[in-house]
Amino acid sequence: MLAPNILTPGLQLYKFTLIEKIGSGNFGNVWKAKDNVLDCEIALKILINTNENIINQLHEARVGNRLDHKNLIKIHYADIIEHENLKLICIAMNYIPGGACTTLKCPGNFIAIDTAINLIKNATMGLEHLHHLNFFHNDIKPGNIMVGANGEGILSDYGICSYSPNNVPVCPSSNYLPHCAPEILSQNTISVKTDIYQLGLTLFRMTNNLGLITNKFSQNQTKFREDSQKGKIITDDDYQPFIPPVLKRIIKRAVHHDPNQRYGSALDVRRDLEKIRLNGSWIIDASGNYIGNDDKFNYSFQISKDTHGLYAFNPQKISKRTGHRQNHQKFAQKGLTQKELKKATSEYMLSIVDA
């Protein structure tokens, strides 16, 4: 991490002018910058050259420079630049104005299901290319899936990517602990299957709750590791009520604690995702209410409780063309227990999502 105030907007580093900081972490900082020679905007990752082997710190640049795929961030340039008696490693790559997919989250801390699936399908194509070149990404997470100019998903960050000449499992240089597959914890190896595991966790987080997995990890790391080994990181109650069974099956297979039970390749994941047909989606608005949407209507529902402790479920729909609001009587129910209410709510929401 760079010391405060070393980098500021307008600072000139070699041929780059810093514009604004767009990311930070233990790795250093990422800035939106201008390449004054090429007269274009780029993303510039800046790290302090520590006592670590310089080759290790340039690893990401060497990997990213070899990649040429529309769903992978391309790295164009890397060098060591001196500034205020520090040697800074500067890595120039494509600037993606849309930023990470997490910027698309609704107030409920998830991304609309149709948008999330499309981003994951795109990023998976990039992952297929990485695997074809015998690289394991090892850091697939929502923050590393960028949103391109046309809404496409672009996989980024090769800082802990590993190369395997024969595509066999290898020891990683480092790990993002909340997304560690069980075999990383037990054997310290990564492979195509660990990338698939991380892809499944990322898909779950994007469509259900971006913070749930990291919160579980932070609350009790020992229990988290135990749950990982048992395949209990994600429970059935963790899913949003509108997630269709087909998507649950894909996620559960991708994150299976036994690598042999997971998908065999990223292509297999993408093929199953491409079979999903959606009619609509749901988000949670700023007031904490679920709001549904399809081509013709917006949807909502109200829940009330009577004096006997039973519930009424009252859905409504609003025409996008006329603005006319009407009760969705087909799905309205009264006298429901809490268990029945949960089922009625899920069935209604799924009826909007499923084609």
Rank of each mutant, 00 (worst) to 15 (best):
R225G: 00
A181M: 09
G200D: 02
G200N: 05
I213E: 02
M206L: 14
P182N: 11
D227V: 03
H179W: 10
F204L: 08
P178H: 10
L203S: 05
L185N: 11
R225Q: 13
S174I: 00
F217S: 03
I234R: 05
T189Q: 07
L199N: 00
Y197D: 04
L201W: 09
R205E: 13
R225W: 05
L201G: 11
F224Y: 15
K230M: 13
D227E: 13
G211K: 11
T207M: 02
I213N: 04
G200I: 04
S218M: 13
T222E: 11
I196L: 11
Q221A: 05
L210Q: 02
I184H: 02
L203H: 04
D236V: 08
Q221L: 01
F217R: 06
Q221G: 01
K216F: 07
L177R: 11
I184K: 01
D227Y: 06
G200M: 04
L201Q: 05
D227A: 08
D195S: 05
Q198I: 01
K193C: 02
D237A: 15
A181N: 03
D236Y: 10
C180L: 06
N175F: 12
Q221W: 01
I213S: 00
L203K: 10
D237K: 14
M206D: 04
Q187F: 08
S228R: 10
I184G: 03
D227F: 04
C180M: 14
A181I: 01
N208M: 01
L210I: 15
K232I: 03
I233R: 10
R225N: 12
G231D: 10
N209D: 15
F204H: 07
T207V: 15
T189S: 03
H179F: 15
D237R: 11
G200E: 02
G211C: 07
S174T: 07
L212I: 15
I234F: 07
N188I: 01
F224Q: 03
S228Q: 09
T222V: 14
L210D: 00
F217E: 01
I233Q: 06
I196N: 00
G231I: 09
T214M: 08
Q198D: 01
S174W: 09
N215F: 09
L210C: 08
S228H: 02
G200W: 04
L199E: 01
K193D: 06
N209L: 01
S228A: 14
E226M: 13
S174A: 15
M206F: 09
Q219K: 14
E183M: 09
